[in-house]
Amino acid sequence: MATRLAVPSRKGKKSGQKPPLESADRKAATQNKWASILIAPTLILLGVVIVYPIISGIFMSFQSDAGLDPETGLFADGGFAGISNYTGWIMQQCPAVGGGTVDCPPGTLGSQFWSATSNTFFFAAVTVVLETIIGFWMALIMARSFRGRGLVRAAVLVPWAIPTAVTAKLWFFIFAFQGIANELFNTTILWTGSEWPAKWAIIIADVWKTTPFMALLILAGLQMIPGDVYEAAKVDGASTWQRFRHITLPLVKPALMVAILFRVLDALRMYDLPAILTGGANNTSTLSILVVDQIRQGFNSAAALSTITFLIIFLVAFIFVRFLGANVSEGSGVIKKAKTK
C-alpha cells in the first residue's frame, strides 16, 4: 500500500512536464507500438495453445465419429454430424445398430452425462462452501497476532505444495479399508468402494488440499482492512459479531468473491482427485473424467462433451461476475489498477 502511494502516477508525471500536445500524441503512439511488441508474443502463444484448440474442438464436435456404416457394413469416416453429438450427450442417446439412436444402456459413457454433471456441481458446491467457511476461519486466526503465527502460516502452505496426484494417493491410503481413518473412527467403511463414502472421501481430500489457498487469499483481503476502523467500532461499543458482520464481511467481500470464483471454476474442472481415488466408479465421475474416458472411444463426441463442459464453466463464471458481485475488476487489483491508470 505504502509503496503504491509513494509512486507518482504516470499521469502526474506527464502533466508535470506539460509537453506540447503533438509530442504527447507521438509519445503515446510510440508507447502503443512498444506495448504491442511486448505483448504480442504472449498473445500469439496463448492463441496457439488455447484459442486454436477451442476452435478446433468446436469444429470437431460437429463431425461424427468414424464407425461402422449401417448400410454398407464398412468402417467409414463420419462426416458432418450437425448437433447430433451434443444432443447425444444431453438426451443420453447412443447410435443404434440399425441406424438411428436409442437410449444409452446403463453403464456406457453415454448414459452418464447427467450424473457426471450433477456430481461435478455437487462436488463444486460442497467443497467450495466448506473451503470458504473453514478458510475464513483459518484466515481470521492467522490474522491475529500471537506467538507462533509464523508456524501456522507455514503449515497451511504444506497441503498446497503437495501435488494433487500425491494428495489423492495419500488420502487413498488414509481411507484404505485397514487404513488410519477406519482405525481412528472405529469404523469398517469401504471408503472408495461405495457411492457416498467415496464422495465424502473426495470432498475431504479436496478440502484438505485447497482450503489453505482460500485462507491465504482471504487473509490477504483481511490485511487490507485498516486497523483503526475496528478501533473506531470498538470505541462505539460494537460487539465482536457486529464488527465481523458490519466491517470485516463487507470490506473483505471483493477479495472473498474473487477467491470463491477462482475456486468454483477450479472445482468444476475437478479431475485428479476422483480419477485417482475412485477412477469415477460408484457414481463419482465428473465431467472432466467423462471427457477423458470418451477420448479413446471417439474424438468428436469427446470434443462435443468438452465444449459443453467449457460452456458450463463459462456460464458459471458469467453468472458469478454478472449477478453475484464477484467483480473481478474490483477485487483483482491487477485489473483495477490498470483501469484507473
Binding site: 504472449t42 488455447i50 484448440p53 474442438g57 470437431m60 467449457f310 491508470k341
Partner: peptide, 29 residues
C-alpha cells in the same frame, strides 16, 4: 505502459488461467 485495450487483454489473460484443461485435451489428443 498505457495503451488501449489493456483492460481487455488483462481480462483475457486472467480468463485463460481459469480455462478448463479438459477442453484442450480432446483437440490436442
Amino acid at each position: 505502459i498505457d495503451f488501449p485495450f489493456k483492460f481487455i487483454i488483462l481480462g483475457f489473460i486472467l480468463g485463460a488461467s481459469m480455462f478448463p484443461g479438459v477442453a484442450l485435451i480432446t483437440p490436442l489428443f
